[in-house]
Design a protein around this nucleic acid. Structure first.
Lengths: 164, 164
DNA sequence: CTACGTGCAAAGCTTTTGCATGGAA
DNA sequence: TTCCATGCAAAAGCTTTGCACGTAG
């Protein structure tokens, strides 16, 4: 699946530097540490996860809590990250650059977030927005329910239902 | 537009009382004050709005902050309310009983929430969920962007752009 | 030398909770 | 008398901010 387009082949750090430049800001070692860290894998994450990780490291390899929060906001502004849901009262982030648009099924039992891509939804939203003269810049769709894994009755203890 | 179905013709307070009974709880004057208040109009609202309003009133006509928060959660459980978005760091609620399913366009300029109903979206979500063996219980869809009103250049002060 | 950045600690906010008091059944 | 409820004040928990100090250009 190759969805890369126009500017999506330069790496996130570079894209971030460009964004910062347009705002008269610099790509500091701390900011770079944050981009590198969050782009190392395509997992969903929240701010505290990286605070725990990055605020321990040496000076030029990590960043403080304040800097992490400030940088995450900048990354969202830059179009590199997307605030995609909320779990345990924390904002959940994910990459918004270099990956195809998608939404999530969120399991209320185990918290798992299952990604799915569906063109019908985005097309429909376009139409609805147009019909209202609304200029859509993005959306956030959280589908709540129980995932297949959690629906399967526990294998260990049979007959558990009888206990209820 | 008459969408009322099976049990949707008894009033919210009564439905709440039934729900509470199944949990061995009572419909107190405080709880009743909350249901009545939030069901008086079909507007979107957040908890603090009603804290400001109801916590001022006399004993049996209002409710304290704690009771309001606790009651709102019960109303969500009961299927009477739905947490539909988040604005200014507050949970936004709306009726989930007696009104057809819908989602929202949220203007990032003025904060306005425009309701829209679209069957294609719910149908698509059903399909996606089924395909993943996911039992969907609901969803939350927030479409971000700028509404028609805010897109129109301000009429009052012409040439405002020159001032920037 | 001037502006931008960082880190720390404190503040800000919404929402939740512990606890003592009060009331319904 | 036994639970369920309320209200108050405090706690919790994430995120933001004021401020003093550094440092790049």
């Amino acid at each position: 699946m190759h969805l890369a387009a126009f500017d999506e082949d330069i790496d996130p750090t570079e894209k971030f530097r460009e964004f910062l430049q347009t705002k008269g800001m610099r790509l500091t070692p701390e900011r770079e540490a944050v981009v590198t860290a969050v782009y190392a894998t395509h997992d969903h994450f929240d701010a505290e996860q990286w605070v725990a990780n990055l605020s321990q490291r040496g000076r030029k390899d990590g960043a403080s809590r304040s800097t992490i929060y400030r940088t995450l906001s900048l990354l969202v502004e830059a179009g590199l990250l997307r605030r995609v849901a909320r779990a345990n009262d924390r904002e959940v982030y994910e990459h918004d650059y270099g990956y195809p648009q998608h939404d999530h099924l969120i399991c209320s039992k185990c918290g798992d977030m299952i990604e799915f891509a569906n063109d019908v939804i985005s097309e429909t939203l376009e139409k609805v927005a147009n019909a209202h003269g609304f200029r859509m810049s993005g959306h956030r769709l959280e589908v709540e329910g129980v995932c297949a894994k959690c629906l399967r009755p526990p294998q260990r203890s049979h007959r558990r239902l009888d206990m209820i």
